[in-house]
Every structure is written in C-alpha cells, then in structure tokens.
C-alpha cells in the first residue's frame, strides 16, 4: 500500500489575504542582516583568529578582572537601589494623589531621553568637591566623583525608569478587590502587602531589576565622566574596551567585547523568560 505523499508545502502554506508578505519580510530580513547580524558576527569571527590561550589570557588579565568586578558589582547595587526606590515611586504614582504627579510621571523617563554624555557631566559637576551635592558630602568624608561610588550614582540614574515602568502597569491592573477581601478576612495592611500585593508585583520587580542591570553593564557615556577611570579602581569594562582600541589592540578589545556580548545575550534571554512569566501571571489572574 502506498501512502500518497501529501502534496508539499504549497498546500500547507496558510492562505494569505493581505498583500506584501514577501516584500515586507524580505526587506526586514535583508535590513536586519545588513545592519545587525553581519556587523555583530564580525566580533565573533575576529575572536576565532585568536588561540584559546590568547583569548583566555586577554579576558582574565588582572586589570580586566578588576573592571568586571566594578561593572557587575556597581550594576547589581544600582539595580537593587532602583528596585527599592523605583518600587516606591511606582507605588506612589499609582496609588496616591499629590500635586505635580503628571509632571513627575512624565519626567521618570528622563534618563531614557537625556543623552548619556549630558547626564555624565551634570552628575560629575553636582558630586565634585564644590558641586551642589558634593560639597555637603565632602565634610562627611564621602567622595563620590572620581571614585567607584560615582559609577554607582551614574548607573542608578540611567536605570531609574526601568523598574518604575515595569511595575506601574502591573500595579494599575492589580485588583483591589483582593486587597479588600484580605482586609475583610482580618489581615492587617502589612499582611495584605506581604501576602497579596508583593506576590503580584514580584515578577515585574524582578524584570525591572534585570532590565536595569542589563542596561547598566553596558553603560558608557554617563560613567566615564564621573568615574575618574583609574585602572584597577574605577575603570569599567566598556571603557577598558575603548582603551584597548586606542592602543590598536583590536583582538584584545574584541575578546573582551565577546565576553560582554555573551553576558548581554544571557541577560536578554532571562528577561524574555521573565516577561513571559509576567504576562502569564496577568492572564491567569484575569481568567
């Protein structure tokens, strides 16, 4: 018995009513390949010209290890600060009424819109010895500008909108009936927060954290001005890549770039999974 082989793909392809599928997808793939995929693959191709040992020694030299510690450590702390304060800002913006709320809500996105170089020189001027903020910290023995603490300040600034903007819509959609139910069953406000509100916003907080962290690890413009850029002390990894480039050590720069890219891709994957989790949560609640 011969099983008739189904007439191939032609029949299986869904019937498309709207025109322009081939044109639009074709152009999309062409442009994506030209602008993003080919240039990015150059980074990986370049590292293949290195021997494994050369690669390892380039990405684990003491100076670059110190830059990883600073970049990832400061990014982690900045993202944590943003979870705490960004969470409070989102809560206040959604739940309370106070004057100037509209403007504050719009200004939260400032770090997205303000060019990083402008943020960098503004923060440096504020936190230097004679600056508006620095002059009050100086007598306390706290130095911010030109120290690792400055890196933390800059990274907190650029990460600010992420947590607020991921938590805000979740809080807006959260059903207050659940809180009322908890209250009527005798829960205190604190218990309601811990058992009802916090679990609802937790995935969004985590997503905001990951987004802020991912952005901070690659940040350059706002940090270079305030960091002081001392090797082994306040030199971030992206700056170290530029230093290598300026010394015409292209392979060395590329090797470190590959490490950073792999970290970013891993973070991107994590963020996608987290966002899927947030969406699933939202849908489950509505059903």
């Amino acid at each position: 018995m011969t099983v008739p082989i189904a007439l191939p793909v032609v029949n299986k392809a869904p019937f498309r009513v709207l025109p322009g599928f081939r044109l639009s997808l074709g152009f999309t793939l062409f442009y994506l390949t030209l602008i993003v995929l080919i240039p990015l693959s150059a980074v990986f191709l370049k590292t293949f010209t290195m021997t494994w040992d050369a690669f390892v020694s380039a990405v684990t030299s003491p100076r670059v290890m110190a830059s990883y510690r600073l970049t990832f450590g400061a990014s982690l702390l900045a993202a944590l600060l943003n979870v705490i304060f960004g969470g409070i800002v989102a809560w206040v913006l959604v739940r309370y009424k106070f004057p100037g709320k509209r403007i504050i809500d719009a200004l939260v996105d400032l770090p997205f819109a303000l060019p990083t170089a402008v943020a960098g020189i503004a923060l440096t001027t504020l936190y230097s010895q004679n600056g508006w903020i620095g002059r009050y910290l100086e007598p306390l023995g706290i130095k911010v500008a030109f120290t690792p603490l400055g890196v933390l300040v800059a990274l907190t600034f650029i990460g600010l909108p992420f947590v607020v903007r991921t938590v805000q819509p979740v809080l807006e959609d959260a059903e207050r009936e659940l809180e009322e139910a908890a209250a009527s069953l005798g829960a205190s406000r604190l218990q309601t927060f811990a058992r009802v509100i916090f679990p609802t916003v937790f995935p969004a907080l985590l997503t905001g954290f990951a987004l802020a962290f991912a952005r901070a690890t690659g940040e350059y413009g706002s940090v270079v001005f305030i960091a002081g850029n001392m090797p082994m002390v306040s030199e971030i990894t992206p700056l170290f890549i530029i230093t290598k480039l300026e010394q015409y050590d292209y392979t060395g720069a590329t090797a470190i770039a590959v490490v950073m890219l792999i970290v970013s891709f891993a973070l991107l994957l994590t963020i996608n999974l987290l966002q899927a989790w947030v969406r699933k949560r939202g849908q489950a609640e509505k059903v």
Binding site: L40, P238, I241, A257, L267
Partner: peptide, 9 residues
C-alpha cells in the same frame, strides 16, 4: 542589549 561601545567596535 549591546553595549554602545561594542556597537561602535
């Protein structure tokens, strides 16, 4: 998700 520095590199 790519660092600006790498985008230039």
């Amino acid at each position: 998700s790519v660092s600006p520095v790498i985008s230039g590199l």
